[in-house]
Amino acid sequence: MNIFRLTGDLSHLAAIIILLLKIWKSRSCAGISGKSQILFAIVFTARYLDLLTSFISVYNTSMKVIYIGCAYATVYLIYAKFRATYDGNHDSFRVEFLVVPVGGLAVLINHTFSPLEILWTFSIYLESVAILPQLFMISKTGEAETITTHYLFCLGMYRTLYLFNWVWRFYFEGFFDMIAIVAGLVQTVLYCDFFYLYVTKVLKGKKLSLPA
């Protein structure tokens, strides 16, 4: 555990909580892509199946349980409790174009050809692109609520901080995981455009709106 890893995890946790609170307090999931949230629920489920097979630490187990629980709670709020506020017409990204190629890639490129390992690899690949339906939705409507941009910023920062964590671990522990690193780089690159808008607009007090 190093400072980048810890702040990365906390940033991830903050993102998840911000989104849950935003939906809960406003009683609305307007502007939120339900498809991205379903993908994140799939990501956590596929990755944390090792909860059943191995124990690493209390920290590790509790974070995994919290992430999974919050992911399903978010999906429940969007598709059940506040379904009437869900903007399905603008959430039109075709997720099969992500899930199918990512599934194929996980079968082809993995560390070990075993069910749990392939599911872990699948979750790593899927996470790297799971935000695309959300970014697509924002580009389609041309705007995002400020609280939604804080969510996206924390979520993007989490993997960016993990990149620093992997550099750290490579130098001090000789540890690296090529699958996680490449996917983490892809994931971070997808946020670059958003990071630019966040810094130049949202942090200066303006609402995030895109030119038509």
Partner: peptide
């Protein structure tokens, strides 16, 4: 260098 899945990570 050890290469392996970072299962201690989240």
């Amino acid at each position: 260098c050890p290469i392996g899945a970072g299962k201690d990570e989240l």
